[in-house]
Nucleic acid binder design. Structure first.
Lengths: 239, 239
DNA sequence: GTCTATAGCCCGATAGAC
DNA sequence: GTCTATCGGGCTATAGAC
């Protein structure tokens, strides 16, 4: 099982196969045509990534064949492999993009000019919005973590864990400053993460309960209201 | 993608391949030997299911080969296929057992002799205990749901959704009786589910944050304390 | 960059001897 | 019930023509 995934332990650089240096040198002779080509390449890359994230979310890493992604995009499997040299590189690029988009949205909790209440409200809003707008990315990330993060663990260690620890440290500072109640900061963060994440990961089950085809804007608004209420109640200092 | 999974749309009965009627007739001639055989068969079946749930949790449905499960159990792939006629039947049996064990543990919220506070505390405790004691089952279920419940959706509709709706109805009754605050009952249940479930599904990420090899009893105790606090605070009627 | 062709492997499942 | 043998098919990835 593991051998299959790890039989290529060489450094897999999830970057564009033909780097921009090529573009730079060729741009001196045929600037316009080359720019056009570059645009096409970026467009196709974006197309591939967009379909890949959906298929990985629906079928998992092993359950998704590059042929099926290529079919959705409308290119040949071999052509897809020209842009992404291997399935694992494509998968890592998908997760890179998910993390980048997530990091973009999540403001830091460390802004000292704002109240903990305000910051937590924004944090919950941002994470819920990510679940709503990028459910496939959330799900691919979730499946990777649930399976033990066999492929993307190192990147999670580098990019996600330090951020979570920083958020926990912020909670601890608030507690020591008497700004919020002395709740367990680690599990508070885990709970916020769990509640917001689940609106992407478990939406299938939720829509079955609600008897809807998909979660509506109203559902997310009500979710936000309840989660914010619960978290603010948890950190409010009892009289 | 889908065709592969659904190319066998005949009714897949996830039951023991050789039913007990065989045992009953043979038992009249060779009662002891047959009972012994039956015990061996049950033991082997249990062994297979135990290893299968771990592998499905770690590698997903498509990522797990029946050969790798057989290897773990110590039988041949063909022998495994004698007990479970196909990979999909084995997978469904795994999920059947997960649901059965879960339903066993989860007491109903409908016990009218107990307070909402007590019932919710027990509910959270039971669900957290399931995450702690059967993390693999929880993860297999989670992965199935995240991927859209393509294989097990019908069973979820039949067995899980009605229960969740019943729990929500109980919340609504409590609200109408003035026993708890008028929170959104649906999203309250989603939140409880999310927070408790995540201690199985996201334990990989949690242990990285905590810098531990695995979640400890103490971690679960602290989680329970915070989740119970948050939920009870949410349903407490403001003065 | 896109195509055809195919190598090389793993997989699920079956057939049939014992 | 367990074994050996194997079929038929899908998969990733590469080779090489254009």
């Amino acid at each position: 099982m593991l051998e299959k995934r790890q039989k290529a332990p060489e450094k897999l650089v999830a970057k564009k196969p033909l780097a921009n240096k090529l573009t730079a040198s060729a741009a001196q002779t045929k600037p316009r045509s080359n720019t056009q080509r570059e645009l096409n390449r970026d467009k196709l890359e974006a197309d591939i990534l967009q379909h890949a994230v959906k298929m990985f979310a629906e079928c998992g890493y092993e359950g998704t064949s590059i042929a099926s992604i290529a079919e959705q995009v409308g290119v040949s499997k071999q052509n897809l492999l020209y842009y992404f040299a291997s399935k694992q590189i494509l998968y890592q690029r998908v997760l890179d993009d998910v993390l980048d988009a997530w990091l973009d949205r999540m403001n830091s909790l460390a802004d000292e000019s704002r109240d903990p209440q305000d910051l937590l409200r924004s944090y919950i809003q941002a994470k819920l919005r990510f679940s709503r707008e990028q459910p496939w990315g959330s799900r691919v990330y979730a499946m990777e973590v649930i399976g033990g993060a066999k492929i993307y663990g190192q990147e999670i260690r580098k990019k996600v864990i330090p951020l979570l620890r920083k958020d926990i440290a912020t909670f601890e500072k608030w507690i020591s400053q008497g700004k919020i109640a002395a709740v367990n900061p680690t599990h508070l963060l885990f709970s916020i993460w769990a509640m917001t994440q689940s609106y992407a990961d478990f939406s299938t089950q939720m829509t079955l309960v609600l008897n809807q085809k998909k979660l509506s804007t109203k559902d997310f608004a009500e979710a936000e209201k309840l989660i914010v209420e619960m978290v603010l109640a948890a950190i409010s200092i009892k009289a």
